[in-house]
Design a protein around this nucleic acid. Structure first.
Length: 258
DNA sequence: ATGGTGGGTTACCCA
């Protein structure tokens, strides 16, 4: 079984690339972020024609999250219960795999813009609410995978240059503490369950030829409950879609579960 | 060290 997460930066633009990628990577679940579409504009018919079930929670221009699977999707939930938020950043569904239910939470964490800004404060509040939500999800679902764009590089080695990034947005102590609090619930960072090449990233700035020079960050993650982590046999970033024409600025991250 | 790009929209936008 394979689970993946990918920030596509506009599904309107990236749908052909997503369909191509899915054809080559028939994962059991794909968590998509930044669809930037309202629900009525979601390309559900195109996905269904290719054999994919889907759930989506979107809005105009910004944010928007979707889960795709060839298996049935049930127990669909949107947003973080009890956390008032106009922005569409969270969706969850239970994937009815042949091997049993897999709970998938898809999250697009707030970017935060700059330390000390209003958006940064919103990010920290979002992370605290997410932790409480995932605590409850874990209590109900043994097989829980939380995929998404967390907009946090967990450690200095998750940046191309700690000299530039340490203490900066996406790398501040408070953001990293918010991420660690998720791990402390009993979730494992699938990336770190297996050996990885140094300087492996999931996002590269469009500017300054960031991808060509591998000036990236590892900010997209799949967190696995203990039961899934025990069965995780591999994980890695697929950089190939980042080489496409008109690519997303993020690459997919995949975890394989036995 | 700076500024660069690419989504979206037509904004003092957001990443």
């Amino acid at each position: 079984m394979k689970i993946a997460t990918w920030n596509v930066n506009s599904l309107r633009v990236r749908l052909p690339q997503v369909l191509d990628w899915l054809a080559a990577n028939p994962v059991d679940a794909l968590a998509i972020q930044e669809t930037k579409l309202t629900d009525d504009a979601f390309p559900g018919a195109d996905l269904e024609a290719a054999g994919w079930n889907w759930v989506h929670s979107g809005q105009k221009t910004y944010n928007g999250v979707a889960i795709l699977s060839r298996h049935p999707l049930t127990e669909i939930s949107r947003d973080i219960p009890g956390f008032a938020d106009e922005q569409k950043r969270v969706i969850a569904a239970t994937v009815q795999t042949p091997d049993g239910p897999l709970r998938v939470v898809d999250v697009y964490v707030v970017n935060g813009q700059a330390i000390g800004s209003e958006k940064y404060d919103y990010k920290l509040r979002f992370l605290a609410a997410l932790r409480d939500y995932l605590r409850d999800e874990l209590a109900e679902h043994a097989n829980l995978a939380v995929g998404g764009d967390y907009n946090i590089a967990p450690a200095p080695e998750d940046t191309h240059d700690p000299e530039i990034w340490e203490g900066n947005i996406l790398c501040s102590d408070a953001e990293r503490a918010g991420f660690r609090a998720l791990l402390d619930l009993g979730l494992a960072d699938a990336f770190r369950l297996h050996p990885q090449a140094p300087s492996t990233f999931t996002w590269w700035d469009y500017r300054a030829a960031g991808f060509r020079r591998n000036l990236g960050l590892r900010i997209d993650h799949l967190l696995l409950s203990e039961a899934l982590a025990k069965r995780c046999t591999g994980s890695g970033v697929d950089v190939t879609p980042r080489r496409n024409e008109r690519p997303s600025d993020h690459a997919p991250f995949i975890a394989e579960i036995a």
